[in-house]
Computed example of a mutant assay.
Amino acid sequence: MTQTSDILCIGSVLWDVIGRTASSMRVGSDVPGRITRLPGGVAMNIAMTLRRFGMAPALLTTIGRDPEGEELIAEATRMGMNCDHIYRSDDLPTDVYMAIEGANGLIAAIADAHSLEAAGDKILRPLANGALGTAQSPYAGTIALDGNLTTELLQTIARSPLFQNADFRVAPASPGKAERLLALLGHPSATLYVNLEEAGLLCQTTFDDSASACAALMARGAHRVLVTDGGKSASEGTAGDIITQTPPAVMVTRVTGAGDTFMAAHIASEAAGMDRAAALTRALNAAATYVSGETPL
């Protein structure tokens, strides 16, 4: 039975394999800790948080027909995701992300999203074949889009009439992929969610604070942008107007997925009718709760 949804999450859905330790680490460290495997990927992380805020996300991604993929589909369905429109590949394996986190933050990470990149525009077929929209009647809802897609596919999305009525919410998958978002920088309905480092990469400079990064991105043509800077500040810029807030101070126990949590909480807050300041506050509180090790609500 086809499920209904109120937001599309397009991008990476995979397994997160995360090693965490309470010790500070450096290159070559060998310390005790815990290793977990959980559903992850930018699109999945956003969708999971949206579910906690009462929204009904649909996933557009690729997942293999291998045992890992079957398990991932089952878990996503159990959590309430709409998996009806996922592209299932017979020959591409399910993607995976691996990271090491210490007391001093993220030490290293490798994202193997090669299957998503290889699938290309196959994941977008439901937006053209009538399942979610057509060229004559484009999808007109909110889309959360992540930077694990290839530059070519992001450029196609930016130009395609299939997306002309959509409310884009866009996040890079990592600083290493931030420049892929240049394809959507000037899109008239795109909201970019980036951290300070990613903002600097998009502007080919460095910034001292989130407000200056926000202003620079808007000067480069961004319709709307949110910039975070860890526990220091976060700024949101719309039509040249910038608001800045400081997140709550918390003990950090995890960092992978914090930006995705912030983005999803902000989207859900605006969907609930909150104004700019209230939505930013709620998103910062959700991200702070997440990195402290609790579940944001």
Rank of each mutant, 00 (worst) to 15 (best):
N82I: 11
L8Y: 09
G28P: 07
L297R: 15
T205C: 12
A216V: 07
Y139L: 03
Y97Q: 10
D121N: 09
A135S: 13
A278R: 12
T142K: 15
A99K: 07
M263R: 09
A119E: 01
G293S: 04
L50D: 06
G69R: 08
A277N: 07
Q3E: 13
A268H: 04
V252E: 06
A183C: 00
V13W: 03
A118D: 04
S233A: 15
N165I: 00
L145V: 00
T244Y: 06
F163S: 05
Q245R: 11
S292V: 12
G64V: 00
A222Q: 14
G176F: 14
T295R: 10
G120E: 02
D229K: 15
N195L: 07
V194N: 14
L14M: 06
A268L: 07
S24A: 08
L14H: 11
L201S: 09
A213S: 08
V252R: 02
Q155G: 14
R282D: 08
P126L: 05
A211Q: 15
N104G: 12
K232Q: 12
S210M: 09
P126C: 00
R224E: 15
T150M: 00
L72P: 06
L162A: 02
I267T: 04
V255W: 06
C203H: 13
L116W: 01
G240C: 08
E152T: 06
E179L: 13
S89M: 00
S115F: 01
G105L: 13
G293K: 04
E236K: 13
E71P: 11
K232Y: 05
V31A: 14
A283T: 02
V250L: 03
T4V: 09
Y87R: 04
